[in-house]
Design a protein around this nucleic acid. Structure first.
Length: 398
DNA sequence: TCTGGGGTCCTAGGACCC
DNA sequence: TCTGGGGTCCTAGGACCC
């Protein structure tokens, strides 16, 4: 039988901030999304005080003041770098590591011997903490779904000390009737609703459904989830290939925008940001989609997008901008107010595979728009320094 | 005043082909 | 009244994830 693990950083963004701002340890702490819009990471203290994931900051601001919260704007340079450090420690312990998101990895531990298995997991947990300052939880089971489920026990029940194994659970089948179905990886809001309608509330209820019912109610993914809950190995652990299917760069504006020049400057910046990622991943894009959108929270749900095929695979800002801008002009409606825009690159190919195209017409580059008052720029009131990725921001040891 | 950003996969339906 | 039977490819939309 396979031994699959999930290693998950606890309250990751908060933990990153705390490595460099230890004065916040023990106090309720949150990290806000871009634009300081909503809460995207919470310390345990913040969770205990009832702050919800995704809570709009302006609604909880006063409450947080009252309870002496530490509040940080998100700092992805820092988190990305801390993530790399955590993952590289994990990779010392296993060959097959799938970096699943910025704060978690699936790991195939099948090669580890059964005796001392859990001790080994505790060792990994301790070593990650020692070398990066980031606390992690580990769940293991015969597949990803059960590993995820047990990792939630590792996190919530202190008795496990951060490591929980499916094989150490007594009588999983009985327990499964007291586990809520929406705690399962792969069952989201909509599917929960569908299942609840049929009276399916627990993991046990779900696994007692016939496969056919699950397949037609949900889709093959729902069926895979059911089978994994029953111990079958369906979702492979695979090292991620570098090449994604698409790559996006989008942002909400700091304030409303109704001026093409503002949107243009924003789009130019997002293209620059996206191109930085293309270059980092050593890939070109052959076509892209641009979009502009209103503020749906204000009932302005307008959305307009355009798919654009580029002359040739590229990772050049001016190249892309020049081909995109005329379409941006035609998407823009001067009678509307915008809150967001962005670009998604498709058909990503390795830069080494670029075919030279002899017959492309030389482009006449279009100038980048510049505004004095950048209404589109995002708000980041509580940003911390890039302690690990910028020489200027290195912490000083006294 | 004020509500994130970036991914994956599946399915249904239309266009088009023979 | 009544209009074949397969394919493939593409796209939009919807579900999921973090």
């Amino acid at each position: 039988m396979k031994k699959i693990g999930i290693i998950d950083c606890n309250n990751f963004y908060v933990s990153c901030e705390r490595v460099f701002n230890p004065e916040s340890i023990g106090w309720p702490t949150v990290v806000l999304s871009n634009n300081d819009g909503c809460v995207i990471a919470r310390s345990n203290e913040a969770k205990t005080l009832g702050v919800k994931m995704g809570a709009p900051y302006f609604k909880v601001k006063e409450f947080m003041k009252e309870y002496n919260f530490f509040v940080y704007s998100s700092n992805y340079n820092l988190y990305g770098d801390m993530s790399d450090r955590v993952m590289s420690v994990i990779k010392e312990y296993a060959n097959n590591v799938e970096v699943y998101s910025i704060d978690e990895s699936f790991v195939d531990f099948s090669d580890l011997p059964d005796n001392n298995f859990e001790e080994k997991l505790h060792e990994i947990k301790t070593e990650v903490k020692r070398r990066t300052g980031i606390p992690v939880s580990i769940g293991v089971g015969p597949n990803k779904t059960l590993a995820k489920l047990t990792s939630s026990f590792a996190k919530k029940q202190s008795g496990y000390n951060g490591v929980c194994s499916y094989w150490s659970l007594e009588n999983f089948n009985v327990m499964s009737y007291s586990m809520k179905i929406d705690n399962v990886w792969g069952i989201g809001r909509m599917w929960k609703k569908k299942l609840n309608k049929l009276g399916i509330k627990s993991v046990g209820d779900f696994t007692s459904l016939p496969n056919q019912t699950v397949r037609s109610l949900l889709n093959v993914n729902g069926l895979k989830t059911k089978m994994e809950l029953e111990g079958v190995y369906c979702h492979e652990v695979k090292r991620r290939t570098k090449i994604k299917k698409h790559l996006a760069s989008t942002r909400s504006f700091g304030s409303d925008v109704d001026d093409l020049n503002q949107i243009g400057e924003a789009m130019f910046n997002y293209i620059e940001n996206g191109v930085r990622k293309l270059i980092h991943n050593k890939i070109n894009t052959k076509n892209c989609t641009i979009f502009v959108a209103g503020n749906k929270h204000k009932g302005q749900g307008h959305y307009n997008s355009k798919h654009i095929t580029l002359q040739e695979p590229t990772q050049d800002v001016n190249d892309i901008w020049t081909q995109v801008y005329p379409h941006l002009q035609s998407l823009f409606n001067k009678n509307k107010t915008y809150k967001k825009c962005g670009i998604v690159f498709h058909e990503l190919t390795p830069e080494s595979q670029k075919q030279l195209c002899l017959f492309t017409e030389p482009l006449e580059f279009i100038e980048k728009p510049i505004n004095q008052n950048k209404k589109w720029e995002m708000r980041q009131e509580f940003i911390t320094k890039r302690y690990t990725t910028s020489w200027d921001d290195l912490p000083i040891v006294k």
